[in-house]
Amino acid sequence: MLKEKFLKLGRTFKEGLNNFFHNFWLSFATVSILALSLYVVSATALLGITGNSIVNNIKNNINISIYLNPDVSEEDMTLIRQEVASIPDVVSVEFISNDQALDNFINNTGDDPVILDAIDEIGDNPLFSSLVVTANNTNKYDGIVSRVENSSFTDKINSINYARNKEDIEKINVAVEDAGKAGMILGGIFILISILITFNTIRLTMYSRKREFEIMRLVGASNMYIQMPMIFEGILYGIFASLVAVGLLPLTTKFVSSLAGRMISQESLHAFYFQYLWIIFAAVLAFGILLGVISSFIAIRRYLKI
């Protein structure tokens, strides 16, 4: 009995394989659109993951700089530093002197002769000394800033750069969310289209084999035996489409990781992709097969009258 089941399974699989290659161009078109859908969905998912990691990375590196007026004495600076450090939730306070800031600036601009000339022209160091404050949680900065602004040394402070960072974070958050939403909508549309197209392909297979089904029924083929080849055909579409989609993904990740590379330090998306290649492949494959089987199933339920 089990042997008979395996025999039938093998035969129906072979039949599905025949269907797949028999109408090669139809299969090609179906696989292409299914692959495109899988690609859009998986690329969106990867972009979402990257976006989140960028935001987290920035959130982790976030700090505020309190710029002090140039006339503040060194003792005052030490006092201010101690006072800031005593605010609850402050993890660290780093003092950066104006000379250090100038060195950093020159290093960052890469010894640009125009900038060096401009600094020479000014003659004096135009930068301020600052205190770089890190809190234990990004939500605490509002409180810390207001404590500093209402402190006794507020007149010695030139500016606090918190507001600008805050806007950047908001922007990135919104961008990531928007990209995610757009990707979901686009992915949804593509999935729908690909189900319709796969469904239609299976329907065409059924139509071209109408006579064969009639004969199969007459010679006593079970419904399962008639349906299985089409389910296998759907599975094959899924498998080939996922192979194509996974093959296309490195192109995107390469592009995205070079863009994102400026924002995320070590976590390049490309590396991430190769690290989780098998998991991504398995997920895309499972999703592809699921789409193929769903499409076949709908076509069979709707059009195969047994």
Partner: peptide, 9 residues
């Protein structure tokens, strides 16, 4: 074909 669908070897 008729034997295949019936699962004959």
């Amino acid at each position: 074909y008729a034997l295949e669908v019936a699962g004959k070897t």
